[in-house]
Design a protein around this nucleic acid. Sequence first.
DNA 1: ATGGTAGTCTAACTA
Length: 256
Amino acid sequence: MKIASWNVNSLNVRLPHLQEWLRAAAPDVVALQETKLEDSKFPDTVLAEQGYRSVFCGQKTYNGVAILSREAATEVICDIPGFEDHQKRVIAATVGGVRIINLYVVNGQAVGTEKYDYKLRWIDAVHGWLADELRAHPQLVVLGDFNIAPDDRDVHDPLIWNDDSILTSTAERAALRRLQSLGLHDSYRLLHTDGGQFSWWDYRAAGFRRNLGLRIDLVLVSEALRGRVVAAGIDREPRLWDRPSDHTPVWIELGA
DNA sequence: ATGGTAGTCTAACTA
């Protein structure tokens, strides 16, 4: 079972890329972030023609998440239960016996801002909810755009991306570690220890050409799934295509 | 070239 995550930065613009990538990569499940589409405009008919069912939770202009799957998704939930939030950043569903939790984590803009506080509060709410989800669904995958680079191997320059920078600050990394302490393992790190493997590059300053990236798109797996991760990777190819998203797909393969 | 680019939407916000 191949499970992937991709922040498409507007599904309206990126639909051709998504379709091309689905053909090439043939994932069983894909979590999308930043669809930026109201539910009435989601291209579920087109995707169904390609063999993927869609569940989605969107809004105009910002945010928006979706899960595409070859098999039907059940037990679909939007938003974090009990957490007041107008931003559509969460969708969860069960596919083929695996609980899939798709997160578009708050960016946070800059350390010390209101948005940064919202980011930390938001992750704290996710933490409480995931503890419940893990009890109900031991076979759990939490994936998406985490907007946090776990450690210095995951940034192009640790002097720039330091303890005081957004996406790498001490409190953000501590919040991520706290999520992982629920028993959620960074599947890329189960199989690879190399640095310099990124999933996002800023559009500005020729970030991709100069490989000025971060690894902020993650696939976390529960203890029960840990031993089933037979492959994990980052697919840089779509970042080379014309008019790309600033993120590229990340994926894992779960064996039997 | 006084920060660069992209998306949404046409001013300014978010990333």
